[in-house]
Design a binder for these strands. Structure first.
Length: 860
RNA sequence: GCGAGAGUGGCGGAAUUGGCAGACGCACCAGACUUAGGAUCUGGCGGGUAACACCGUGGGGGUUCGAGUCCCCCCUUUCGCACCA
């Protein structure tokens, strides 16, 4: 241990001060136990899959090795660790692993800054953070540690990539991509936030045209969406975010024939609409500026070119600014027409900057009367607004000349079609079904589902990532690296540059290769994989971390999966959690696993904030875990992060709060040190059935506390109230000091309550638990001790206080035996002097007796 | 604009099904122990009153014997989504 973490030690206290109380110094205690625990590498190892115990896989999201843990990590891991320890004590076979999401850009940036190779920098950070985790006492099985930047891990990324390529799930295409000039690389759509890079919130993302590798996540979109409904133990918030991200939209594609001669782009325009029922109100067609037909139209009408360039430019700028939603709508009339297949009407074709090529078909029918955007556009360019749907408030068609702005039903559920030929009189819903059927029958349309989600672009023009195992042969074209040549190793010696393009392209030894098909010259793919590939399946690797012949052993994975409890930040609600669901489904289809979803339960903890704001270096409100450990110890730091707020809410870090927890642990420590008498002949004896009232009170509180905490673990996870309950128990014990001094508490009970108190505390404060367990004369490993059972009979109150209300207002409290009859409680209430006074001279109308809760007397 | 949370003492937060509002902790106040206290122990601590009464869970209505909790309307706030056709 570094000296900096032990500001105070036992030896600081001069021994010639005998009057001084036994003080609580966590540092030496924690360091002692940390050393003991580290000497036993199997302490937290799970049983083999043949175990007779029920499996429980508890997992916290693995960190990026930035160099130091922050409080968010501590909170995340404190929750997982408490759960893991509890499940161990409940007798489960617990898998509780940890690893490192170790590829990524910061390593390259650090390399530029400090002239340290990314690998060295990363491994150094991992070592430092692992040390912090050990100091915090987290119960990880380090024998299953996974580090994604090491070849024994990333070779399986490559293997999966090849398998996906075989299955047609990995493909290469030229496309518009999001480019972060700061990162000098491509970003996935999921990594663009408000038009800016997720890593550089100030940097606008540019659009570039590049050849990229994609994973066909869209093949799995219907299942990814449908299975969200089965994830009932995931937060609704996360499921909603994923639903929005997937963005399912049910509608129809409808073909509008082009008037005149067809060009290379065909003789029709296919539009996607969710409101086919409004098609009789379509008064124009709007094309995205990039629509293939636009080229044909420009040939016919070269004057368009300037306008189209302008529209394209406006759209690109708006997209880069993240303000696509606020774009000033512009369009240009092409002079061409298309035919509405429902009524054979000639409809003018426009090109508009608010129509996007990458959604639907890149062409829409514009219905100004029933779509706000179309309406704005129509007003601007003076296009016809034709009402075809009315709210169903009357069977009558609208009078000609009705003020259109007032009655425009942009969306209306209970509605009536008008001006729509044979479909007049139908409701909205009926019309959508009938008109889609009509279009299908006549061959000009089809029911279609469109998704907002796109395929996952995984190419990155960076060095510190998994090399994509592909070759480009002059003769054979794209050739996958044969499986037996994996891993494609990342070269160690490399100049990192911030220039555009892949750094690997500058390493001839890497780039130049032989084609495995023809033996001729080939060039290696120099892009690396998005680091989200690494984290998409890492939790499977934990089940067989050292396996050299496969990504994991399917039998082991099938034993451990799905993860019983996954815990992490809500910031991963979309990226990581959707990619890893996709990966799981692909692996299932490959026959590697049986589960379709990675995690049974997901818990997203709240953020740790300080002074009402997120901790950040800029704000200067960062609290370092190391400082907290040095001041108050790991137990107090961890326990405070569980005590200060329910785990799903944001937590405002207050150092005085940590001090309070530290004070509490000191109280526990002093009590046990004072009252432990393991050498006493009756120490391990049975608690007598008959107890004095004082002893009975302690016993009752103990069993109530066990019940409360067990209940919290099995249910709501409100550890703040669990810890409060332990505090109450300890307060009760301090309150009994004089009774103990008088010998009114049997030594057997005193032993029992202390043992169970330590067991209850163990998931939250493992160091103090271990220390006091040995103070009590126990030699077993606390973690493997059974969780205390509560006896409802012992937890029951003998006498209870019942509030008595008169007309709903509290007037008195009566004390009655806990099992009193309703009659008895009622009579006791009426006999109470204060109640009598409140009722004086009034007539009793009604008496409500809630057994064990309260009495309410209604008088008049 | 749409969707999901949240709003309770000076502060963090309790109140699992409608049943004593404020558990537990922090801060503060007082006392004890002490050469000393920033240690420890004990007590107090929503407003109000001499004490009662009374008033108090963002605001306004409602249901109920009884509402922080259920229903309706509104305000504030956090987060997510947002020309997605």
């Amino acid at each position: 241990m570094p000296d900096s973490t032990s500001k105070t030690t036992v030896t600081d206290i001069p021994s010639e001060q005998p009057r001084r109380d036994e003080r609580f110094h966590p540092q030496p205690i924690e360091e002692k136990w940390a050393a003991i625990w580290q000497s036993d590498p199997l302490l937290y190892a799970a049983d083999p899959v043949t175990s007779a115990r029920t499996k429980y896989y508890v997992l916290e999201m693995l960190p990026y090795p930035s160099g130091a843990l922050h409080m968010g990590h501590v909170r995340n891991y404190a929750i997982g660790d408490a759960l893991a320890r509890y499940m161990w004590m409940r007798g489960y076979n617990v898998l509780h692993p940890m690893g490192w999401d170790a590829f990524g850009l910061p390593a390259e940036n650090a390399a530029l800054k400090n002239n340290t190779p990314p690998r060295e920098w990363t491994l150094k950070n991992i070592a430092a953070m692992k040390q912090q985790m050990k100091r915090l006492g987290f119960s990880y099985d380090w024998s299953t540690e996974v580090t994604t930047c090491l070849p024994d891990y990333y070779r399986w990324n490559q293997w999966f990539f090849l398998k996906m390529h075989e299955r047609g799930l990995a493909y290469r295409k030229k496309s518009k991509v999001n480019w972060c000039p700061e990162c000098a690389t491509v970003l996935a759509n999921e990594q663009v936030v408000d038009g800016c890079c997720w890593r550089h919130e100030e940097t606008k993302v540019e659009q570039r045209e590049l050849e990229q590798w994609f994973l066909r996540i869209t093949d799995y979109v219907p299942e990814l969406l449908a299975d969200l409904d089965k994830l009932e133990h995931w937060p609704e918030r996360v499921r909603t975010m994923q639903r929005n991200w997937i963005g399912r939209s049910d509608g129809a594609n409808v073909d509008f024939k082009l008037e005149g001669t067809a060009g290379p782009a065909g003789d029709k325009i296919t539009v996607f609409t969710t409101r086919i029922d409004t098609i009789y109100g379509a008064t124009s067609i709007q094309l995205a500026p990039q629509h293939p037909l636009v080229t044909d139209l420009m040939k016919r009408n070269p004057a368009l070119e300037i306008d189209v360039a302008k529209l394209t430019d406006e759209q690109r700028k708006a997209k880069e600014a993240g303000e696509l939603g606020a774009i000033e709508k512009h369009g240009v009339k092409t002079g061409a027409f298309a035919i509405n297949p429902f009524n054979q009407e000639r409809v003018p074709i426009w090109i508009a900057n608010y129509v996007l090529m990458d959604y639907g078909t890149g062409a829409i029918m514009s219905v100004p009367a029933h779509d706000e955007r179309d309406y704005d556009f129509a007003k601007k360019y003076d296009l016809e607004v034709r009402i075809v749907v009315l709210p169903r408030r009357t069977e009558e068609p609208p009078e000609a000349g009705d003020a259109e702005e007032n009655i425009l039903p942009f969306t209306s559920e209970e509605s009536l079609l008008i001006n729509s030929g044979d479909f007049n009189g139908m409701s909205n819903r009926e019309a959508i079904a009938a008109m889609t059927r009509f279009a299908e029958e006549h061959g000009f349309g089809k029911a279609t589902t469109t998704y907002r989600m796109k395929d996952w672009g995984v190419s990155r023009q960076r060095y510190w990532g998994t090399p994509i195992p592909m070759l480009y042969c002059e003769k054979c074209g794209i050739v996958p690296v044969p499986e037996d040549q994996l891993p494609v190793l990342l070269p160690e010696k490399i100049d990192i540059t911030q220039q555009g393009g892949s750094p690997l392209a500058n390493v001839p030894e890497f780039v130049n290769a032989t084609c495995p098909k023809c033996g001729g010259k080939a060039r290696r793919e120099t892009d690396t994989m998005d680091t989200f590939v690494d984290s998409s399946w890492y939790f499977y690797r934990y089940t067989s971390a050292k396996l050299a012949t496969a990504p994991f052993d399917s039998d082991k994975a099938n034993y451990w999966f799905p993860i019983d409890q996954y815990i992490g930040g809500v910031e991963h609600a979309i990226l990581h959690l959707i990619y890893s669901r996709f990966w799981t489904k692909v692996m299932r289809d490959m026959g590697l696993i049986k589960n379709s979803e990675p995690a049974q339960r997901l818990f997203t903890q709240g953020m740790v904030i300080k002074d009402g704001a997120k901790m950040s270096k800029n704000r200067g409100n960062v609290v370092s875990p190391d400082d907290m450990i040095a001041k108050f110890g790991a137990d107090s730091t961890r326990m405070y992060s569980l005590f200060a707020a329910p785990p799903d809410r944001d937590l405002d870090w207050q150092e005085q709060g940590v001090e309070g927890v530290h004070r509490f642990l000191g109280r526990v420590y002093r009590f046990v040190v004072k009252h432990a008498q393991p050498q006493h002949p009756e120490w391990t004896g049975k608690v007598p059935a008959q107890l004095s009232p004082e002893a009975r009170a302690i016993q009752r509180k103990l069993h109530q506390t066990i019940a409360k905490i067990t209940h919290d673990f099995d249910g709501r996870w409100h550890f703040n109230t669990s810890i409060a309950a332990v505090m109450e128990l300890v307060n009760e014990l301090y309150g009994a000091e004089s009774a103990i001094a008088l010998g009114a508490i049997p030594i057997t009970l005193l032993a029992d309550v202390q043992r169970k108190l330590i067991l209850l505390l163990a998931p939250f404060a493992p160091y103090l638990g271990a220390e006091l367990w040995s103070v009590l004369g126990e030699t077993s490993v606390l973690l493997k001790e059974p969780w205390p059972q509560f006896d409802p009979a012992l937890a029951k109150e003998d006498e209870i206080e019942i509030p008595v209300q008169v007309n709903g207002k509290l007037r008195s409290r009566i004390s009655v035996p806990a099992d009193s009859s309703e009659e008895f409680v009622r009579n006791a209430a009426f006999a109470d002097e204060k109640v009598k006074a409140a009722m004086a001279g009034k007539e009793v109308v009604k008496v409500i007796v809630v057994p064990g809760k309260l009495v309410n007397i209604v008088v008049k």
